[in-house]
Amino acid sequence: MNTGPSLNTGPSLNSGLSLRTGLSLRTGLPWTVLRLHRAALIVWGAFLLAALGTLVWQVEVTADSVREGMSACARTGGLCRRQAVIHYGGGISWASTLVYYSFFAVAAFAGGALVGRELENGTAELAWTQSVSPTSWLAAKLAVPALLLVAGGTVFVLVFRWAWAADRDLMGDDWTFNDVFAARGPALVAYGLCGLGVGALAGVVLRRSLPAVGVACAGMYVVNHNLEEHRGDLWPTAANGLHPESHYWPMHLVETGVVLGVAVVATGAAFFVLRRRTG
């Protein structure tokens, strides 16, 4: 007896089904993405926590001891001061540098583990025949990490802004340093999302994990390097031909916009390529 779902091919059922697949949250896709990439999630979480911990530690603990040390060599200054700056500022700039350039790791992850490997070994097709269309599959694959990147990146930016401003006299950098420039605002998050998009595009196009890792990282290098080179051109300079610090936000937001633009174009292209290839 046919007790199971019958072969009803009527239009009413079809429209109901397409409505349901459209809402990816109602399927367990987010769970699937998190479970499949649990190791990456743990590594990323530990990395972010370590970076945040370093910032808090430097400001709350190291700063005081550095001040004590500096008062001992107050009479001479010079090299003594520089050592203190290296000791204190080093930890903070390590944290911002590593988190800022982690978009390379994001691009490698997206091109390799997230998309490329799944297309390479056929597990993507497994999902596509488990009631998930390729489009919603890619959407979930990008949405879940994007959400985490936005959340984690926002927290880092806020903590870094606080840590960077806390003891300016103990630090030798300024707002124009590459990592400082990016990590004090949304550009940091934008770079992460751009890495995700570029990685996904590389993975979808190449369908192999290792070439996708290489191409995604190279692509991100091109984007990032050119922007770092031309940061000064992103906003008209003041009359003296230089950028005062008040230009930080306009320059930063223009760069954020450019990076987000690249992210959107890459993500759109990834969807386009995937849709064209599958039924």
């Binding site: 089904l17 349901r20 697949t21 056929g122 497994l126 596509w128 025949t129 009631s131 599958t278």
Partner: peptide
Amino acid sequence: ARARERFAYVAQAKP
């Protein structure tokens, strides 16, 4: 694509 929920598929390599 529209019938996706209603069929199952097992690939040769069993990925």
